[in-house]
Design a protein around this nucleic acid. Structure first.
Lengths: 219, 219
DNA sequence: ACCGGTCGGTTGTATTTACAACAGAAATGA
DNA sequence: TCATTTCTGTTGTAAATACAACCGACCGGT
């Protein structure tokens, strides 16, 4: 666990809290570390959850396979990001999605009750964590809305333009790498991979974009 | 404002807090009431926001019109529901959506800084409000994920089935009313209205569903 | 070097969708 | 009441999509 303190310090959840204070808080928040191999599921649909999770290392997909095997990637989790928070409340019921490790990953579990219950004395920074939790879940919310704005576009081309524009905006650069391969991007945008591949090449031929593997440039 | 205290008591934000205590807290949270006519915008894309809003009366749509005039209804707000919370944090930037009153509406504004800053003495229930805020935003999050699961289906029919099934599940009844007319439902599911209308009638003819106006029955 | 697997691009076809235009029913308002 | 507007369903056509199948490039392991 110790090796991940520095990572936790950089997370939104522990923003403005020092490494020493984080170390002191870990037992109070009942932190546990688990590791997963690429391809393993961290959480599965139908389970219930009373933990908030932070990805310390690796890469995860929040996803959902339907009855016919169509996969939908709801969200991607990168190191330092929090997940599970929306299903860790009393009213939330069981999970509606799977969480899959797409690389070897390390995940830290925190007890949500411990976070929300301001404890006796030790944790002066407890209220800071609660506020950070609110900021983090707000950001998640905005991410989901952004995703809705991508996939609510009617055509594959429009979805691609919306997604790539947003990536460029976030990277503050017209050239950037995306965290998906083609199949994953198609699953994220809810379109057919081959149709999307086709559309990307058309956009390249029209001079709108350039790309090589996961690296894109908007022109 | 007084007439809405009873409504506030029923909201998730003020769960477990009595009417007297809510009344006492209102000045502390800098509550303000504003009313809007049907068709007016409460918030518009590009504005910045440092308030959390609760709908006291009426109906709102969180929506987004693109360059070509295609409307996407991100979410619908019913009385007692909170909104704006995801854009009221320091990091959140300006609004990416419009908020439109689809009926005459009354909205209560709360200062988010006041909510997140535990104040001196008067508000014993401040921490309860913060926790409630977390629960509420968690629920919003789950709602958004559900919506993503609807619109990530590939065909209009599948989207309809996913949406109607979820409505039936929530109403715990195979017969239920939906809060949209046809155009709004199409905007919510990101499909063409006429194509959706067509699909609904096909499903009716196949014996899958029955409907009359906004009232649906799954068979 | 060989093999198997993954990945990205291409093509063709059947299906589905968007879009526009129209008509009847229902609701609205003067 | 009548006129107007809104809502819903219907149709036809052009466009876009899903799906399946195939190919070559690349990569890692043996």
């Amino acid at each position: 666990m110790k090796k991940y303190i520095q990572i936790l310090k950089k997370t939104q959840l522990f923003s403005e809290i020092s490494e020493e204070e984080i170390t002191a808080m870990l037992p109070c928040l009942r932190a546990e570390l688990k590791t997963y191999k690429k391809g393993e599921f961290i959480l599965m649909q139908g389970e219930s959850l009373d933990k908030i999770l932070v990805l310390a290392e690796g890469k995860l997909h929040i996803q959902c396979d339907d009855y016919w095997g169509n996969r939908s990637i709801i969200n991607m989790i990168l190191p330092g990001e929090m997940f599970g928070e929306a299903y860790a409340t009393p009213q939330s019921g069981t999970l509606t999605n799977d969480v899959l490790a797409t690389e070897d990953s390390a995940v830290i579990f925190f007890d949500v009750k411990q976070i929300l219950t301001v404890c006796s004395s030790a944790c002066r920074f407890h209220t800071t964590v609660i506020r950070n939790l609110f900021f983090a879940i707000s950001e998640k919310n905005r991410k989901l809305v952004k995703k809705i704005m991508f996939i609510s576009k009617r055509t594959t081309k429009e979805k691609l333009i919306a997604y790539l524009s947003e990536e460029a905006r976030q990277h503050k650069n017209n050239t950037f790498s995306i965290p998906f391969n083609r199949q994953q991007l198609a699953d994220f945008l809810s379109v057919d991979r081959s149709a999307m591949s086709n559309e990307l090449c058309k956009m390249r031929d029209e001079g709108m974009i350039e790309f090589e593997k996961n690296r894109f440039t908007l022109l």
